[in-house]
């Protein structure tokens, strides 16, 4: 974890209520896809944890949905503004555990961190199938970006307006993968857990956080290995340890 200050380079809507923000600054503490930053938003007491979608030596990209006071203020911030943040939080996905052919499975705002993961898995020589689930074309995002990475990209929408009608689990039979990584809303993850068979997988959880770095015990989940903090021990957990 480092404490740093990013400069906003761009902040634009890419889907209904969803913004992409590019930040310039120190990314040295980000070691794995699936980690997050904890942003200090003007006038609000608690920081806001947002997952890193992609990063390089000079900066990073976050993609967030406006769901409350913090993300609302964030969406109104302009390029050039400074954004104080804690960076490199959480464990991220362990790519050494990924099979030669790995499915990266994202639902809604769980899709962005899977982009950085897919990119790095491809760089390491893995075969990657992206399975992306949305409500409809309105909240659909990053599909072309995943395709541009060169991975097979499958899309489901609940309303059938694009790709396969149904939930992201409907895409599972369409690829013969050896392991998976997933991020998305809890009902999706639960459905996935029931539908994916016995393949090894890593699952990134979401929980309302206080501090974001393990101090307050605000985001604890019970697991088969005892209580774990989503912010510090996670957000990524091996599927075997999770209790549904």
């Amino acid at each position: 974890m480092i404490k740093t200050e990013y400069i906003i380079r761009s902040n634009e809507p890419i889907a209904d209520g969803v913004y992409r923000m590019r930040l310039e600054g120190d990314t040295g503490a980000i070691k794995a896809p699936g980690q997050f930053i904890d942003i200090s938003v003007p006038e609000l007491f608690l920081r806001r944890p947002i997952s890193v979608s992609d990063w390089d030596a000079s900066g990073l990209t976050i993609i967030y949905k406006v769901v409350g006071a913090g993300t609302d203020k964030l969406s109104a911030m302009r390029p050039g503004a400074a954004l104080p943040a804690l960076s490199g939080l959480g464990n991220g996905f362990d790519m050494d555990k990924c099979a030669r052919h790995t499915a990266v499975i994202g639902g809604g705002v769980g899709v962005p961190p899977m982009y950085g993961l897919a990119k790095r898995l491809l760089e390491r020589g893995h075969e990657v199938t992206a399975m992306l689930g949305f409500n409809g074309t309105g909240d659909m995002m990053l599909v072309q970006e995943f395709e541009a990475l060169g991975c097979r990209t499958l899309v489901s929408t609940a309303d059938g307006s694009f790709g396969v009608r149904g939930f992201v689990t409907a895409l599972l039979p369409m690829a013969d993968f050896g392991s998976f990584c997933a991020c998305g809303p809890e009902p999706m993850l639960r459905a996935l857990e029931g539908a994916v068979g016995d393949k090894p997988g890593q699952i990134s959880l979401e929980e309302r956080m206080g501090c974001g770095f393990g101090a307050c015990m605000g985001c604890t989940k019970q697991t088969k290995n005892g209580p774990k903090r989503v912010c510090k021990d996670g957000p990524v957990f091996d599927r075997e340890v999770l209790i549904w």
Binding site: L44, F45, A69, R208, G210, C216, M217, T220, P227
Partner: peptide, 23 residues
């Protein structure tokens, strides 16, 4: 002690509420 169910944290002006419950 596991403590209380989540959400355990809520925000307010210049502060926060917690209901961690002695985890």
């Amino acid at each position: 002690r596991f403590g209380n169910p989540t959400p355990r944290i809520a925000e307010c002006a210049s502060g926060l509420l917690n209901s961690v419950g002695l985890q």
